[in-house]
């Protein structure tokens, strides 16, 4: 059984590696964006393990992106170091936010994270001295903008998204999982078994924010131009939660399946509905909550058990 999994994963990764041969530039662009949102979705799912619901992952994404932008503007581009720094700064924000949030109920966390992302967006827009305001800033491409830029970016994003999935898998197989799951289900009972709930909630927050910040940094370099509406936008936070939900919350595979299903669906919607595709996203979110809250993976597992 285990060897089958290994085989499937190897095949899938191998197939992904070959993608640039088959795909045109536009399709490759879509795949790159999908992988970036896959990283964000995976990190959101990690935070969820401790029953903390973030409606503001766009905040961390934007912090990562803007850190890269600022570093490249003030100093010379130092890729990929600036991407890491972006992740670390996002994680620092998360530690502060985590310290504030860790005693709160899940409702309050949702509110605070939503407000966090919105306030960052408003501040960047309204206070031009922070980061050129609503105008946005240019970010140099990672590989110098030469002909193979997109393909190189694709492999970088593929590598990072595999790393994030490995990280999620490692958490699942480590002691952390037991602490996360205990804190998720019952903080008081977890405390009685020696688990410090606050510590693990903050760990989850910072790991999650780090990954999202890195994704934001890569996005900034890849798109090479960022503005507050794009990187702090609600659509990023929406992506982060709808993909795990559609694929399957609490699972590793969930965000993967969710991101690919949704992006493909999103492309179709974009053709038919134009800019209104977010309506479709919202409808999918509502429909899955109402009718299939365990997601595609959970549904498949249920079918398999029968």
């Amino acid at each position: 059984m285990k060897s089958i999994y290994v085989l499937v994963v190897t095949l899938a990764v191998g197939l992904m590696c070959c993608l640039p041969i088959f795909l045109g530039p536009h399709s490759l662009h879509i795949v790159i964006l999908t992988l970036i949102s896959l990283i964000v979705a995976t990190s959101w799912n990690i935070l969820l393990l401790t029953h903390q619901i973030s409606l503001g992952h766009a905040g961390f994404f934007g912090v990562g992106a803007y850190t890269c932008g600022a570093l490249c503007e003030k100093f010379m581009p130092i890729v990929p170091l600036d991407i890491l720094v972006g992740g670390i700064i996002a994680a620092l924000f998360a530690v502060i936010l985590g310290v504030i949030c860790c005693r709160m109920t899940v409702w309050a966390i949702a509110i605070v994270t939503l407000a966090f992302a919105e306030v960052l967006k408003v501040l960047v827009i309204m206070v031009p001295s922070i980061a050129d305001g609503a105008e946005g800033i240019r970010v140099p491409p990672i590989f110098g903008g030469v002909g193979y830029e997109k393909i190189a970016c694709f492999y970088l994003v593929l590598f990072v998204s595999l790393l994030s999935l490995t990280c999620a898998y490692a958490i699942r197989k480590s002691k952390l999982y037991y602490a996360f799951a205990a804190v998720h289900d019952d903080e008081e009972a977890a405390g009685m078994l020696g688990v410090n709930p606050l510590k693990f909630k903050i760990i989850a927050f910072s790991v999650s924010a780090f990954m999202t910040g890195v994704a934001g940094g890569i996005f900034a370099h890849y798109i090479s131009f960022i503005d507050p509406y794009t990187v702090f936008g609600l659509h990023i936070s929406l992506d982060a939660q709808i993909m795990p939900l559609v694929g399957g919350l609490y699972t590793i595979l969930g965000p993967v399946i969710g991101s690919f299903v949704l992006t493909s669906a999103g492309e179709v919607f974009r053709i038919y509905f134009g800019s209104g595709y977010l309506i479709a996203y919202g409808c999918i979110l509502v429909a899955f909550v109402l009718f299939l809250p365990e997601g595609i993976v959970g549904w498949a597992q249920r079918l398999a058990r029968r």
Binding site: I53, V106, S275, L278, I279, G282, L285, V286
Partner: peptide, 24 residues
């Protein structure tokens, strides 16, 4: 009766739908 997670995601999804319907 469901978990607060579902309730949060549901009303958030509804907000997104209404915003974008209005946008269109």
């Amino acid at each position: 009766g469901a978990s607060s997670l579902n309730q949060i995601l549901l009303t958030f999804g509804l907000a997104i739908i209404l915003q974008n319907v209005a946008m269109i």
